[in-house]
Design a protein around this nucleic acid. Sequence first.
DNA 1: CGAGTTTGACCCGCGC
DNA 2: GCGCGGGTCAAACTCG
Length: 430
Amino acid sequence: MENHHHNHREFSFLTSSGDFIRSNNTDPPIKEMNLFSSSPNNNQQEDQDQHVNTGLNLTCASAAVSKLENPENSETELMSTLQIELRKVQEENQNLRNVLEQITKSYSQLQAQLFIALQKQNHVDNMEANHVMESSEQKTMNDASVSDGKQACLSDHIAKDVVECSSSHSSKTFEQDLTHFRKARVSIRARSEAPMISDGCQWRKYGQKMAKGNPCPRAYYRCTMAVGCPVRKQVQRCAEDKTVLITTYEGNHNHPLPQAATAIANTTSAAAAMLLSSSSTSSTLSKDSAPFLSSFPYATISTLSSSQPFPTITLDLTNSHSLAMQENRIPLPLQHPQQLLGVNPFFFSQKLPTMALPLLQQGQRPPNSMVESVSAAISSDPNFTAALAAAISSIIGAQRGGDDNNSNNASVVPAGSPQLPLSCTTFSTN
DNA sequence: CGAGTTTGACCCGCGC
DNA sequence: GCGCGGGTCAAACTCG
């Protein structure tokens, strides 16, 4: 029933009063905004426009100043207010840069680890094959020994790299890291009345069990978009709050993904990468060991335990704790929806579900129940979560030199995250 | 009839 | 070795 609300979408941006500027058919669509662009703008007007696009109220507030034509005192006050606001925005921007830096770093580390692990495995396989050959054909062995010798040299070199790269790790912990690399899970909490979320992939239920400590059954699904796709997911309602649906993803897709499934796949990949990055450098997982996660308002970390044998990162989209965080951090009247929703303005400025707009137009201050409704609508909306992920991936893509030539592929993207090869899971809600 | 779901049986790891 | 719990299998069942 509520799905048809999702059929009609439009871009929306915030003014300083909390109003929305909604694009119509005559306005050119704004597809992407880059808060991290370090390249200087040649055109000042362009610069100003970019500030409007961020939805961070800078230019909108300036416009308000010129409109009002206040006396000097008011202007001074407004200027100081704007300066304070600007500082906050710069601070936020810096935080986001730090997050991005960590994600990029994690990606590089994981890519290097994967490469090394694969080469190491190849080395073992080659050694075994060589051993078999030694006991079988003498002549073939003589021929093969030349090429194997080359491979051995290469593998020795790689093995040396392994030692150097994991100098702070024993080989055992390195193997454990590899196990976690394969088994890392991303758990997403979202409020949803639906029994199961649809996330752009096709799933087949293959089991259901009653889990200990939870009256609600846990359902097991496997991806059926391709034969042999190893991706699994578990769906279970939260024992404490049955309106919260917990979806846990594990594994990497071995097939192209529909565009709708790609966006959150990148997000969960990034989350898994962050988790694995922190777990590879620290035996215990905490926000202290992964300080960049403190900037991610949704993320909480599960530590390794007997009940959770694999490292799991939880992306909490239920917003309850985020609300508290935001209210503590920004003791201003709740005039910006992103404050109400506990959403980073960077994410919020991308795109919003149309269904949420009527509730927040004209600078209304929504009542608490409305806040809950809107936050639930947003956290359960596929386009919002998709926009969130798209924002992350676009920034990562830009950081990597804009070499992503797949962006023009309309409906299908290659298997595996283009940014992070580790985990290509998907998520959105009905 | 094929695809998806249900559900009891089974497997496996872990702690005692 | 045994029991427990998580996860998977597969036959039976349902549905379009």
